[in-house]
Design a protein around this nucleic acid. Structure first.
Lengths: 242, 242
DNA sequence: AGAGATTGCTAACACCGTTAACTTTCGGGA
DNA sequence: TCCCGAAAGTTAACGGTGTTAGCAATCTCT
């Protein structure tokens, strides 16, 4: 009974297994979208696929692993969407690229609120995947698109970092820098990156979770203002909204 | 079988019922904190209280209602904590008061991550409490503390609102203004309020849900910077961090 | 062709929300 | 004082959930 069930040897077996895995995830996602997170259940997925629940244990060791795999695939889809938005603008204009990526993040999240909710609110619900610092791979694929663009923006623009950088951060920020394709980005600049990242992610989350409904029917202009602020903080003078 | 079960006539009966209601909520909260949201179950609460699950239906018509009551009580506790932080500074300095309230919000959320997660991530999970615009009472008790302070800050300071206010917002913002004790706050200023509120709430959520763990062990300085930005946007020149 | 891995099944267990029907307890009016 | 009705709590039961054990079938490779 392997924790990651059977790894087939044959070529054909491998292919049909891949198809089953993606069908499981697709079915789970459909249930998530149509009936909410509580409906993403082993028995429901199996029912929709015309099989029984214990059969799914040949693909995922537990319900938690299935949800985690679903979240991981959603991170991938989001990262792909962000990269596509980035590539709709020339690489010579990283400011426009980052603006487009920010708006694409909001668009994707609002178009797929259940999926975004799963990604954003998952770590707290679990509270078990917090041993070291290597478990954040799936979320990095998605955040990396934004951070890499910030690095490009740092090359082109002129960021004015704050001089008062808490020395206790250096160790952590060094670790972030290693993920940045070995670019020699100053730690103060990485601090600005993290600050902008937090502001972007928070703005999207607050809106998706409906915490602005009490005041605004269409918070798009507010978000555009936030994006302008972020680009300004990253030293991009030309604030291109569209 | 009333939707809101029995309303006792006697004085003593009323008292013991109140005690039972609070004990249910306390037990539910303990389970939430100790074993996560999935453990807040009718049977578990009844077990901890030495009774059986159907007995709880004398107090809450369904599991959803119990969770909703728990969230409501948490909103109250948070609002009380924010008000206490506000009152630790003189009313003549609303800037210091708002700064203290912002930091208290972060402190409370980090000290009670499961509770904050229930409040922040609940509306999306439900997706049923969205008929009109009167269901946001519990969250308003908590956000009202912040918004009222922003009004005070507007009286004392000098907010520079942006001139380009989307006309489509006026209707919504008018509705917000009615909640503000009838203060004649300009709509542009209310827009600034909402903007600052979104930034504050988002900054706390991003940190509580662990989306800054990849970079920072102690995001407190980052949050302080955010609070300074917010106070500046609200026209408070003296940025008092402590 | 046969051995071994892989896949899916049924049966079963404990837990969950919820309902129905019953018993007990308690407060207030005759 | 007594009694009646409301309130509180019980047991039994239904369908749903994750999960495990054990078994049958199927496919792949030698």
């Amino acid at each position: 009974m392997p924790s990651t069930p059977g790894t087939p040897t044959g070529r054909r077996r491998h292919r049909v297994r891949e198809e089953a895995l993606t069908e499981i995830l697709n079915t789970g996602r459909r249930l998530l979208v149509e009936e909410g997170p509580a409906a993403v259940t082993l028995r429901a997925i199996a029912r929709e696929m015309g099989m029984t629940a214990p059969g799914l244990y040949r693909y995922y060791a537990a319900h938690r692993d299935l949800i985690q795999a679903l979240a991981s695939s959603l991170y991938d889809e989001l990262a792909t969407a962000l990269a596509a938005a980035r590539d709709r603008h020339p690489a010579s204009e990283p400011g426009r690229q980052l603006g487009a990526v920010c708006r694409e993040l909001r668009r994707w999240a609002l178009a797929h609120p259940q999926e975004f909710g799963l990604l954003f609110a998952k770590p707290l619900t679990d509270a078990d995947t917090a041993p070291g610092a290597a478990a954040h791979d799936p979320s990095w694929r998605f955040g990396g698109v934004v951070l890499d663009l910030m690095v490009q923006l740092w090359h082109h623009g002129n960021i004015k970092p704050p001089a008062d950088l808490d020395p206790a951060w250096t160790v952590q920020l060094e670790e972030v820098r290693e993920h940045l394709s070995g670019e020699p980005v100053p730690l103060e600049v990485i601090y600005v990156f993290v600050s902008c990242w937090a502001r972007l992610y928070g703005a999207v989350a607050v809106e998706v979770f409906g915490h602005l409904d009490f005041a605004l029917t269409d918070p798009a202009p507010l978000f555009d203002h936030t994006v302008r602020d972020i680009l300004t903080a990253l030293g991009e003078p030309r604030t291109a909204p569209r």
